[in-house]
C-alpha cells in the first residue's frame, strides 16, 4: 500500500491503536490490580496504579503465597520453564528427524508412516488424555518432569511443517551435497538444519508458549506440589474455596508468569518474524 491519503492514514492508525488497546487493556488491569492492597482491589478494580507494587511483588517472591494455597512462586516458575523447554526442544528434535526421514529416505511404509503422523493431528491432548494418563501412570512417570513433558512432545504439526519446508529445498542441493561427499547426517547437520534456522526459531517460540500454557495435563499428572506449574498455581490461588482470593497477589503472580514467554518472544523476535514471512533459499 503506497497510497498517501491523510484521512486514510488517520483511520488506519485509529484502528491499529484501538486494536492494540484491546489487547493491552486486560494486562494493564492485571498490572494495576497487582499494585494495590487486597482490600482496595476487592472493593472494585481501580484504573490507576497504586503504591503497593514493591510490597506485593516482594510478598509473592519471598514469602511465597502459602496462604493463597500454592507452592512457592520460584519453584513453579522453574517447573514451568523446565516443562516448556523440554516440550519445545523435544518436539523440534523429534519432528526435524522424522521429517528428514520421511522426505529424504525411501523405506517401506514411508507413506503410511507419514499419514499416521498426520492423523495424530486430529487427536489433541484432551482427546487422548485418558489413555495417555494410563500409560504415563503405568510407566511410573506421575509427578516427574518426564511425565509433564514427554507425552506432549510427539508432534504432528511440527513434523508436517518441516516436511513442507524440506520439500521446498531444491533436489540439486541434495545432489550437490552428495557429490561434495556429505553423507545423510552431514547433509542434515550442515545444510538442512542451518537452512531451517528461521523456521526453528518461529517454532521454538510457538512451542514454548504451547508448553507454558499447558493446564489440563499438568493438573492430571502432578499431585505433588513441588511439580506444580505456574499456570496451575494461578488457578489454585484464584480458586480457594470459601476464602476470598487475594486478587492483588494473584495478579502479581500472573504478571510474573507472563514474563518468561515475553522474554522468549522478544529475544527471538527478529528470527521469528522472518521465519513466518519468508522462506530463505
Amino acid at each position: 500500500m503506497v497510497e498517501r491519503r491523510p484521512v486514510m492514514t488517520v483511520v488506519q492508525h485509529l484502528v491499529l491503536i484501538l486494536g492494540a488497546a484491546l489487547f493491552v487493556f486486560p494486562i494493564y488491569l492485571a498490572f494495576v490490580a497487582s499494585t494495590h492492597t487486597g482490600v482496595e482491589v476487592s472493593r472494585g478494580l481501580p484504573l490507576f496504579p497504586g503504591d503497593q507494587l514493591v510490597t506485593n511483588y516482594g510478598t509473592v517472591l519471598s514469602d511465597g503465597i502459602a496462604s493463597a494455597g500454592a507452592p512457592p512462586l520460584g519453584l513453579m516458575l522453574f517447573n514451568s520453564t523446565v516443562m516448556s523447554l523440554a516440550i519445545a526442544i523435544g518436539k523440534i528434535a523429534i519432528s526435524l528427524l522424522s521429517a528428514f526421514a520421511i522426505v529424504y529416505f525411501r523405506f517401506p511404509f514411508r507413506i503410511l508412516a507419514f499419514w499416521t503422523i498426520f492423523i495424530t493431528l486430529m487427536l489433541p491432548v484432551e482427546v487422548r488424555i485418558l489413555p495417555t494418563y494410563e500409560v504415563v501412570a503405568g510407566l511410573g512417570m506421575l509427578n516427574s518432569y518426564a511425565g509433564l513433558s514427554i507425552p506432549l512432545i510427539a508432534s504432528a504439526t511440527a513434523t508436517f511443517l518441516f516436511r513442507q519446508f524440506f520439500m521446498t529445498v531444491p533436489d540439486e542441493l541434495t545432489d550437490a551435497a552428495r557429490i561434495d561427499g556429505a553423507g545423510p547426517l552431514k547433509f542434515f547437520r550442515d545444510i538442512l538444519v542451518p537452512l531451517s534456522r528461521t523456521n526453528l526459531a518461529a517454532l521454538f517460540v510457538i512451542l514454548f508458549l504451547y508448553g507454558w500454557n499447558q493446564y489440563l495435563w499438568p493438573l492430571l499428572v502432578t499431585t505433588d506440589e513441588s511439580y506444580y506449574t505456574i499456570v496451575m498455581g494461578i488457578q489454585r490461588m484464584a480458586n480457594v474455596g470459601e476464602q476470598q482470593p487475594v486478587w492483588n497477589l494473584v495478579m502479581a503472580t500472573a504478571i510474573l508468569a507472563l514474563l518468561p514467554p515475553v522474554v522468549v518472544i522478544l529475544s527471538m523476535q527478529r528470527l521469528f518474524v522472518r521465519g513466518l514471512i519468508e522462506v530463505e533459499k
Partner: peptide
C-alpha cells in the same frame, strides 16, 4: 560407487549453491 567416491564434480543448472 557413491558420487563422492567417483572423483567427479558437477555444475548444476540452478547452481545449487548452499545459500547459508
Amino acid at each position: 560407487l557413491e558420487p563422492a567416491e567417483r572423483d567427479i564434480a558437477m555444475v548444476f543448472q540452478n547452481y545449487a549453491l548452499y545459500p547459508h
